[in-house]
Structure formats: C-alpha cells, structure tokens
Design a protein around this nucleic acid. Structure first.
Lengths: 343, 343
DNA sequence: TTTTATCTTGTCAACGTTGTCAAATTGAAT
DNA sequence: ATTCAATTTGACAACGTTGACAAGATAAAA
C-alpha cells in the first residue's frame, strides 16, 4: 500500500488538491464544511504531508548542529535543547560531528549546508572559537549562531549565546572565601581552553575584590580529565603550603581531586573542600556529591536554536541580539568551613 | 547571490541540464570532453546538488535513530556509529529522542516516518524491547533493526543486532574465579533491566561450570547508578560474610562500590576486587581504573545502520541476517587475587 | 558511399508540494 | 432582480532533480 499523497485525499474528499493543501496548512479561506470533509479524508487515509516535497517549495527548514566535543553529556544536552525548539517550530535538525583540527572543516560544512538545504548553523566550542571558520561560513551566506564561553568578549560578526564563565568563577570563589577559605587552589588552567581562562579570571577577580592576594603556586595547569585531576592534586599536595579548598575547573578534575585527597588520607570536605564546574553527571559520581556550577546547557542550546530559527524565518534580516547566560552555584556537600589551618 | 542549480551549470557548460545530472551522478555515457567542461563549470559555480530535490525522485535516503536512554555516552557512541555509515553511503540521519513510557510512541514514530520520508529505523533498549511498538512499526511498513541485549533470545520479527550479555557475564565471572575468588558478589540486578538479567545469568553459568554454588545473599538488587552502587555496597558490607570480589552490573555501580569500600576502609583491589561493565568513561572516573567489559557501541551501531541501509536499498526484500556481538574483557587494575580469606 | 550499431546528448514528464492568479460561489446592498 | 464585493475554490506553473525514451553524432562494417 502506497503512501497517500495530497491528491488521494483530494479525490476522496471531492475537492481539488489545492484545497487539501490549504487545510493542511491551516489557511483561512476554507469553509467549515469543506475543511471538515477534508480532515476526515486525511484521517481516513492517514495522510502525512511529505516533508521533502514541502522543503522544495518553501524556505529552508533545517538547521545544523555542528560540534567537536569529547563530552558526551554536553553534546546530548545541547542536542536536546535544540531538538525541543525544532519540534516546537517544525524544523529539522541535522547533526554534524566533525574534526575541528581538520583544515577542511570550512569546506566540509559549506558543502553540507549547500547540499542539505540547511538554513542555519549552531556552533559550539571549540569550533565556535574559530574565527576563520566563522567568516568562511558567513561568506557562504549561512546564518550562524555561536555558543561561546570564556574570557574574551565575543566579536560581533554573528549573534552569540555567551556563557559568563568569569562571573561564575567569581561567584564560586566568592562563596569559598565567604566560607572562610583563604588558600584556594585552582586546578585545570589550560591555555587552549577558553573556559578555563574565564574561570581563572573570575577566581582572580574574587580575590582582588576581597583584597586577598593569590598564591601562584596554587594555580595548577592541566587537562579537563579525572586522570589529570589526580595528577594535579598530587602535585598540589606535595607542596609545603596546603590549600583548604580546591576550585577545579570542571567536575572531572574535581572528582580526580577528591580521589587523590582521599588516597592521601584527607577527608572531604573536613580537611579540604573541593568544588567542580559544569554540574555534569560526574559531579555525582563521587562522594560527597560535588558543589559545582550549573551550566544550563539545554536552555542555552534552546536559546541558540530559537535565535537561528528566528534568523532563518526573518526575511528582512533584522539583527538578532546576542544573549548572555549567568550561571548559578549548586551547593552540595563537598564544601565546609576550614577547620584546621594547615601549617 | 542565489544558490546555483543544475541549469546554471548547464548554461555555463553549454550542455543540457540532463548531461550535468549525468556528470554529477557519475554515469558512464558522457564523453571525457564534456565531462571535463561540466566539472569545470561545477567548480566555478560551486554547485552542490540539492539533496532535497533528489530525495523526491529517488528512494528514501533517511533513517531514524530512535532512543530513550539516560546514558549520554551510549547515545553518542551509537550516533557516531550510525553517522559513519550514513556518511559513507550518502544517507541522512534523523535523531529522534522519545519517551518510551508514553502510550503514543508508536503513533509518534509512525507520524515521523511518514512525514520525513524515512526509510528505516534503528531502535535501542528499552524501546527495542517493546514488542508492541515493533509490530506497530512493521505494520506501518517501516524497515526496523533492533539493538538488543539481555537474556532472552530475540524473536524473529525483524533483524536484530544482539549483544551477548550472558557470554560476557560468564567470561567476567570466569575471570574472577580464575583469579581465585570464590565469594563474588553481584550488584545491580534489576528485573526491568534486560541486560542485568543476562549478566546475572552468565554469572550463574560460570559458577555452575566451576561447580561452585552461588550464595544468594551476594546478589543485590538495585539501579544502574553510582548512588545505588554505594547503597548496595553498604548493604553488602554489612553482611557477616564478606565477598572477595564484586561484579557490578555496570561501571557506575562499580564506581559507587569502589567509593563505599574505600569509605569503609577497604583497599581496592587488595581487600576487595571490583569489576564493572560497559567500558564507559565512568570506568576511568575512579581509582584504580576499573576492569570492565568493553561494549563496542560504535561498531554495534554501525552494523545496525549498515543493516537498515541494506534493507532500504534492497528492493527484493531479501532477509537481512541478524547478528551477534561477543564482548571482550578490559583488564585494568581493580582486580587482584584474594589475599586474605575473610572469615 | 551507405547502412548499421554504438555511443553521446537532449527532450519531456514526473515526484508532491506551494504560490499565483483566475474562476466560481456566496452574501449583502442596491 | 441586479450589481458589487468578499469569500471560497480550482487550474496551472514552479521548485530541482531523475527516469524513460528519442534524437543526434560518431565509428565501424558493408
């Protein structure tokens, strides 16, 4: 049994197929009588308009989510946020994992956009930080929205959803300072990682505001992984002056820190308070559960999707405003006031 | 500047647009001269064939990945496996997260398949376990491939990619037995979780083969989470007879077990060996890294995708064979021979 | 040279929808 | 009744591509 087309419905309802089209698209000028008859026919035949054929006549109805990120949870959250918008507004999502280090990303994306009738693109870090890629895409007249976070104010080439890492880093550090911590280590600064820069900047800012000077020895460089978290913590704990709290640049590092501290016999949070960043599942994959910063990725992605869709639908090319997200702390049990001042 | 169509290319190359189509589709009967001229024109105009219009004439070129799974890493791996096949074979992937508990899943999926010209569907647990959904989809003549794992032999309604949990559970248990463990606890049996049944079955089998009877008290029910892992381990450790090894039903449980053991002062693996299942990032999110079972999700998904594509392309409806995957152990440092026999 | 076979190219319809515009119908006002 | 406007409906082209088939060009055989 073939899939019914609009013409089959028309025949059954004894109207022209154009009228069926009108009913399907909820257009005004159809009498109630006819509308009812057509709707009945639609139901009887179980007719579904052909998305593909539709696309050919109308403006593009697809947007692409381009990413190159090893963090599954992040990607899925993004995806979900975008899909929610797509479903609400009848758009199609094309996911496009790629390799940000490849020379060909630009071409590859342009090709995809061209062939798949894609109207808009959402870029996440680190792809969204690639200025060349962005201009390349803009030159191939794609509508682009970038999701960015970090210390640099984003340029104005295209609308951005900006995550305020500086503010969040500051809030978290402030919180630790308020708890009475004065020796706060910072784990996981990485020059290639924009977010880490922002978070460190906030850390610094909070110290400045409190008139407390930062001990450079407490800032340790490393990767955003559990393994690296353990290594960094080991190095940290080998130093003469012990911190009373650790601000880890993400939850995985924090989990590694928790582990290493325990291995060396420190109690968490009694001996050392530890906080993470991201509110990922990893923040609950340790004990006690980590105080962390919530990144509302689903909302962020939904916002970005709404923006691209807006840009696609808007003919007159009115500029879509960038927007910023402030992050909130998630207080759990990995922090307490410092009891013993380490010597 | 408008997107160039096949006709623009034709005009530039001074041939009919049909000839361009032939060049684009790499058909035989085009003279080298003309082909070169057309290709040049294509390059000059940066022409990309319109995927959408193509779809309208040809057989469906899209397949859907339907899932309802809280495990981001799993979903991403699946997605990647499927995408690899789609790219290789020029297919389009539509991802469709859904709610398996909803009454409407079937209708929802049928609607999606109908409207988006989807030729095939890949189902993962728990959706793939839903017989009703499957028959519903088959009745709406969709091509379906299911990814399944567990203790039940899958029915023959549609081709299946089957993950042999029983065998894997048996292998892992055998390994622990070979290390000299006799008191092996099993954490995370859950009646609603097919995989856990299979793994437990394998655990039982290995004991049977070794002529060792299983102590029912060592089998603890629970969820597939870190939190539950901690709880179960707490219960386990409260029992008079301590195990020398713990077989956790997945890595998160195992990580929880590691944590709880440590909290109670047991050393891993010296006092208690612990193994997980899945080889997820969580298995490295603890210390020591977990011995676990590798689930080659990317390959599994790629296989499933290849199968659906096969079914879609094959007109004569030849039956695609189901296939099974055997899993392999990943030996890391969370296991050693039991030193002290607990009393 | 003519015929035939083969290879290359072109013409046109079709896919399922929406946009444009004209035709038919309705209803109100004269 | 007649006219006019407003509403409802329909005919047809168009979107960018591929498939079926016909036409033209070329090469080989007569």
């Amino acid at each position: 049994m073939k899939k019914p087309t609009i013409k089959d419905v028309a025949k059954l309802a004894e109207v022209s197929f154009k009228t069926v089209s009108r009913v399907v698209n909820n257009e005004e000028s159809v009498s109630e009588q006819v509308r009812a008859r057509v709707q009945e026919a639609i139901k009887k035949l179980n007719y579904q308009p052909n998305h593909t054929a539709r696309l050919m006549r109308k403006a593009p109805f697809s947007l692409a989510f381009v990413y190159d990120n090893p963090n599954s949870h992040y990607v899925i959250q993004m995806q979900n946020g975008i899909i929610s918008q797509c479903r609400a507004k009848g758009f199609e999502l094309v996911i496009h994992p790629t390799d940000s280090k490849s020379e060909e990303v630009g071409k590859e994306l342009a090709a995809m956009i061209g062939s798949k009738q894609i109207g808009g693109v959402i870029l996440t870090p680190p792809l969204s930080e690639n200025r060349e890629l962005l201009t390349y895409l803009l030159n191939h007249d794609a509508k682009v929205v970038r999701i960015l976070s970090g210390a640099e104010a984003p340029d104005a080439l295209a609308p951005v959803v900006y995550v305020d890492d500086i503010d969040a880093g500051e809030k978290m550090t402030q919180y630790l300072l308020q708890q009475g911590h004065q020796q706060i280590a910072f784990l996981g600064y990485h020059p290639a990682h924009e977010s880490s820069k922002g978070r460190l900047r906030g850390y610094q800012l909070a110290h400045d505001n409190a008139n407390i000077s930062v001990d450079r020895n407490l800032i340790i460089d490393g990767e955003f992984t559990f393994e690296s978290g353990m290594q960094m913590t080991k190095r940290l704990l080998a130093q003469p002056k012990l911190p009373t709290a650790i601000f880890a640049c993400n939850d995985e590092i924090a989990a590694g820190a928790v582990f290493m501290c325990r291995l060396q016999g420190y109690k968490i949070p009694e001996d050392i308070s530890i906080v993470g960043f991201e509110n990922s599942p990893f923040s609950l994959q340790t004990w006690p559960p980590l105080t962390t910063v919530n990144q509302p990725n689903v909302e962020i992605a939904a916002r970005a999707a709404a923006m691209v869709i807006d840009m696609m639908q808007d003919d007159k090319n009115h500029t879509v405003e960038s927007c910023g997200f402030q992050l909130d702390l998630v207080l759990r049990d990995s922090v307490c006031a410092p009891n013993n001042t380490p010597d």
